[in-house]
Design a protein around this nucleic acid. Sequence first.
RNA 1: GGGCGAAUAGCUCAGCGGUUCAGAGCGCCUGCCUUACACGCAGGAUGUCGGGGGUUCGAAUCCCUCUUCGCCCACCA
Length: 908
Amino acid sequence: MNQDSVLPPQYDPTGLEQELYRQWERRGLFEPRSDRTPPGPPSSLTPPSTRPYVIMMPPPNVTAQLHMGHGLNLSIQDVLVRFERMRGRDTLWVPGTDHAGIATQNVVEKMLAKEGRTRFDLGREEFVRRVWQHVEETGSAILNQVRALGASCDWHRAYFTLDEDLSRAVREVFVSLYERSLIYRGKYIINWCPRCLTALSNEEAEKTETEGKLWHLRYPLEDGGRITVATTRPETILGDTGIAVHPEDPRYRALIGRHAILPLVDRKIPIVGDEAVDPAFGSGAVKVTPAHDPTDFDIGKRAGLPSINVMTDDAHMNDAVPERFRGLDRFVARKRVVAEFEALGLLEKIDNHQHAVGRCYRCDTVVEPRLSDQWFVKMKPLAAPALKAYQDGSLRFIPEHRGAEYAQWIENIRDWCISRQLWWGHRIPVWYCLAPTCRKITASRTDLSACPECQGAVRQDDDVLDTWFSSQLVPFSSLGWPESGDELSRFYPGDTLVTAPEILFFWVARMVMAGLEFMNDLPFRTVYLHGTVRDTRHRKMSKSLGNGIDPLDVVTRYGADALRYTVVSGLSVGTDLILDPEDLDASFSAGRNFANKLWNMGRLLLSHVDGPVRPLAGGHPDVVRKAELTLADRWIIARCEETVREATAAYERFRLNDAALAVHRFLWSDLADWYIEGIKPRLYGEQPGGDVARAVATQTFDVALRLLHPVMPFITETLWRRLPGHTEEDSISVAAWPASDRRATDGGALRRFGALQELVGAIRSIRAEYAVQPGHTVRARIATPSPDIAAVLEADGAIVSRLAKLSALDLGAPEAQDDAAHAILPDGTAVTIPLGDLVDVLKECARLGNELGRLQGAISGQEAKLDNPQFAARAPAAVVDREREKLAAWREQAGALAEKRRRLGCPE
RNA sequence: GGGCGAAUAGCUCAGCGGUUCAGAGCGCCUGCCUUACACGCAGGAUGUCGGGGGUUCGAAUCCCUCUUCGCCCACCA
């Protein structure tokens, strides 16, 4: 059968991948099935668990575009899920999206800004409607992008964090924590983003080292003298309500209890003693601004100092400051304050000072620590079990050292600010009674229209919850919790969480705590934290740097398989993935080329399996009687077995790159380059054993495709379905994982075939050195000290002849002819090829000789020209130089030619 | 300021006490359009395994130190 008409030589995944994905989804192959066939004989170190394999997708922002980090994350997860599914486990991969409060709200606000409107113009209800509309328009895009990568999720269970049932879970958790006093409302210093106009959690306020200044400023004392304080934010001086010194500091001890006069404001402020002050830093005296600094807030609380907020929501100076400062931007005010101090002679000095400045993780604006009313979760009680789970080993991290980070964070955990001054998100389920006599605050699972206490009118809290408050619940809220049901008991707890280290605290740690608190069990046992995608300058890929790679673009140009192969083979545990956004080919052509190689291997094999291939049981052709197998057959079967073990063990240990490379080596180097090349005479009927060769080749190819399927699902599916024994109705995605079979192990075959490979290599080297045309055959004489090898050559010399292109292969004592090329292998095997056979070398010598002769003639002519005094006298300098350069170049060429002739052993 | 990781071919990375551990892919050089594949085939070059010291019969592999890069945490104003 001529397959060429059906299968073009160039593999094109376009369209094919989408079609396959639609089929998979339609056939429900990604849905969990408890009736899956049990795993075959163990091919692994650890037999698969009988529990379902459940994995949770880190929810991308619902309206975002996929970036390469997602490509990496989804590829890894899909490899794991597909591997477990093929091993026969009941698998579930839950996809989902995140409403991403700040980000999504920002997007819609920007759209409004183009219409010249703000969210306040629309009002809350209308604004939220607009956001929903935007989400509905764009939200499915990201899920289709996930599909395009081949991710085998169960779409029936896709969640969105603002869905009704997930929202119910959010309420349940909030109220439950509130009732147990684990949620409280309080006035604290929080990180405020003056651009997004909302509070941020500590994790959302990213600290960046910044080169700043440290201003040393003098405050006059009430009763004479001065005290110097140091600050990085002079504008906050306007809100100072005290000065703190260390109680034991001999320089200042006497001043405690006295007062200073705050310059510019003329406020009388006390000097207090507090342990928090480091006498060694700055001047050893600290200005205290309780409303704008967390440390100062604590000091102020201890000393009973008032708090004066001096800024508006958008970080301009407010009415609490002297009139001339009002309305100024905080950084303008900073300059103004310093200038006035200087004018008053109160500026002592300015030091350069490097310090950490918090910035909004969404818009990079410098956050303003600010006193305000917010909701908090008391974390200590929730954290204790989460720490214990790590310490007793029930929660494990890969790479291991990430666990230490987790533990450190948990140990120093601080209360979580969960309120956000946004409109997009889960509104805090708290109602305030408006009746002045009642004023009751109620947290409720259902909306309230009247105060449960006095039936008076109520008003719901304006704020929404931090997006992560809902995300932390998805391991159980996406399975129907708080309703208890079969889904929940079957799929909770899950197995593995695969995510980027950036959200270890945002998401992972909080899921652990929530799971332990509300489900009384860990949401997963293993946390695999993969690396970050960076460019060749090792910068994180990001939109703002413009160094990103669009995974969909890669899929279009190279195919999802190529993307996945590149990502998986290039990422080892604990390292980052470096890709070049300027040169996609450098990164992704390897994957594309591999897919094309597989395609062509398939084309070749399929063109030879016209009729039914002799069925072979198990993964290995062990039912073929050993006697029928040639050395090459036994070798490839043994290599196949080795690869099954290697790849399986690697997948189990998250060493996905090792797995991918092991299969790659087997398919390309072993199967294609050696085995298939070697058996061609059998396939073409020039030698006996064609049936066996065909069977062995297709069977081992089948095994290798299955091993590769988790990494390259599309090309493997495409080819596998056409292999003998399978139909278009079958799917490799639910085919049995190849079983290891000890009977296929064959150390002797590996060793002996290895010797033949060396032999072939030696002959090929000689051929290359003498520039023998590929079409020409040569005679080789081989003398080996090993009776083993001699026997092999006797029986299987044909394959050496084929691979090294020999016309004859003689065995026996080495021929000591001078006109022959020789090679000696490490084991002492000697190869002799008569020079007469290397006929091309003589032709080449002649050609080189002619060329060299011509060149030498030209050189002597040129030398004569340059030596000619008339030429030297008349020609312009530039021309002389040019002619000299010409001569030098020719001499160099002649040298190269002579060297080439010498290398080929040409006669003089 | 604490804690952690990494430094191996031009690039990205395997190898982490000893039998081919000096490797892979890409890149580079030479020759081939040998009818599965030029997204290919064959051959080839390239590294005192960051510097220094130590442990050992033996170290890229363990220990110390220095240098250089990353990452995490931290209220030093």
